[in-house]
Design a protein around this nucleic acid. Sequence first.
DNA 1: AATGTTAGATACAGTTATGACTCTTAAATT
DNA 2: AATTTAAGAGTCATAACTGTATCTAACATT
Lengths: 214, 214
Amino acid sequence: MPSKEISTNRPGSGRTPRPATRRRGTQLEVALLDAAWAELTEVGYSAFTMEGVATRAKTSRAVLYRRWSNRSSLAIAAIRRQTKLAVVDIPDTGTLRDDVLALLRHASARFGEVAGVFSFLIADHFNETGMSAAVLRERALAGEPTAWQIVLDRAVARGEIDPDVLSPRIASLPLDLVRHDVIMNRSSVPDKTLVEIVDRIFLPLVFADRPRRP
Amino acid sequence: MPSKEISTNRPGSGRTPRPATRRRGTQLEVALLDAAWAELTEVGYSAFTMEGVATRAKTSRAVLYRRWSNRSSLAIAAIRRQTKLAVVDIPDTGTLRDDVLALLRHASARFGEVAGVFSFLIADHFNETGMSAAVLRERALAGEPTAWQIVLDRAVARGEIDPDVLSPRIASLPLDLVRHDVIMNRSSVPDKTLVEIVDRIFLPLVFADRPRRP
DNA sequence: AATGTTAGATACAGTTATGACTCTTAAATT
DNA sequence: AATTTAAGAGTCATAACTGTATCTAACATT
């Protein structure tokens, strides 16, 4: 059977009509990471394979292995890239409440999209490396002040809130709750819930010692 | 090579000194489920295999397959058993704060179990069924009032808190935050954090309209 | 004591992914 | 134009797990 079609093996002339172009360098790497991200969001980490990514990216596994030695590295790289890409335009409505709500709505919608990726947060990689979702998040956001932080800073600058009552835990509370909700329900958070988080939990804590806003 | 050691294959006389006892019936089944639970909490669902469970239980896969046809059935059975077993003894210190703290400490200490169960909930099985962790949790707790609910009810009965300010979201807030923390950090929650959640977030919200406690 | 059930060991075929390796050739570099 | 790099196609050995099956001896039942 090895004598079948001897040396008609020339690529381009064989049964597989290969595209005449080859991606290189950054262009290729971006394509690979995008494919990896798409794979992650669609099939989840548990079914995330080098083979699947290679197929989707229309390349071979070798190209992937040259850059990432295993699937968890690739997954992390894809997540990193995606979090960098996801630039939020920062709301500036003039009130803390509306700024915060705008960001939560955005976060909820976005978390909802990538809910499948959260499977990654639990999976084997963290068992091996001892890394956690929190660590990954910190690294991904390293340096850059988040939109969230900027919105809070502005509220402090306006004199709307007292920086002393804004402990890190209270500051991150709304986003934490939205994230928790998404993880538990595997879907974006109803707007009613977002409003409740802001009006019944976050703002009362932030304005605890002050008279209520007008 | 098949003629090597013909018929010295008698178990008990071979190279493997097998234990002379055999578990049966309920005793065996309990051992299997315990092994499955241990495996689930330690390696997570993505690395949860019939083979791993069998090895841990010191039995063969056939014994597992006779009872559960695949790993998700086995995982579900193990989780079911555990949720039945895990009876929390309900603290009754006389104050809401200490009761709540006791329950949070208990929940935090069992973080590994949370992580194990979550790794299952989030894995592929649920991608297909569309079920969410929140739904499954409700089902698991169906009927039975939780220790958490009982503690809150007692505080209401003592007149310590006003049932009207205790919306479902605020009521579940401390547990939600602990769960979120466990998921994000893959470890138990520092006691300092638990105290902060109770004293800086939960109690201020619950006692919002009242004078501070003595 | 005889009989039936089944735990537990072992083997096997089939599937899927890994990771290393060829080889040709498109694209970049010189 | 000549040379170097590496994309992309493909092969192969290895490993892990699945699900089924076979066999024996330890237990329960009679």
